[in-house]
Simulated scan of single mutants.
Amino acid sequence: MLTKDVSEELRAVLEGLQAQGKEPTVALVKARMSTSVPMPALITTIKSWKSANRIPKIEVAASGQPEIDRVSQLEQQVLDLTARITALEAQLSDK
């Protein structure tokens, strides 16, 4: 499964909240993220930020769009190969 590192996005969100004078909470951070991050990862990140002003490396599953494209490509490939097999079978039966 493909993963995406969201540590920098989390850092930007937390620094933005800090610049606004707001205390980072799970709800505030989650609302500002463009990528969906699991709740336990958010909690760990916020605790680490509050205690040491540090962001751990957080990776999440990459978006599902490439997977959908891949499935579509595989379906098309199956259709193409089926057509080729049918054509080859027709050639063999003519001989």
Rank of each mutant, 00 (worst) to 15 (best):
S36G: 12
T44K: 09
I43Y: 02
E23P: 05
N53T: 10
V37I: 05
V78C: 02
T86P: 00
P38Y: 08
A61S: 12
V71K: 14
S93M: 03
N53L: 04
G16L: 04
S72V: 07
T44N: 04
Q73R: 11
E75W: 03
Q20T: 08
I68F: 09
V6I: 01
Q73I: 07
E9P: 02
S51E: 04
S7T: 10
L81S: 08
A19M: 09
L42H: 01
V37N: 04
T3R: 03
A27G: 12
L79Y: 05
A19P: 02
N53F: 06
L2R: 15
S7V: 12
L74R: 02
N53G: 12
A27T: 14
T86S: 11
R32P: 03
L14R: 00
A31G: 14
L74K: 06
M39D: 14
Q77F: 02
D80P: 01
G21F: 08
Q77N: 08
S36I: 07
S48H: 00
W49Q: 01
V13T: 07
K95H: 10
T44F: 05
V37S: 01
Q65E: 10
G16Y: 02
R84C: 04
E67Y: 13
T86K: 03
A62R: 13
I46N: 00
V13E: 00
K4I: 15
T35E: 12
E9G: 07
E8D: 10
Q76R: 15
V71Q: 05
I85F: 08
G21D: 12
L14F: 06
S51Y: 03
L92W: 10
K50V: 10
W49R: 01
D94C: 08
L92H: 06
E89D: 15
S7Q: 05
Q91R: 15
E67C: 07
R54L: 01
A87M: 06
Q65P: 06
R84V: 12
V26I: 14
P40I: 06
E59I: 09
A83H: 07
T25R: 10
K47N: 14
T35Y: 07
M39V: 13
V26T: 14
A31H: 08
T3L: 09
S93Q: 11
Q18A: 12
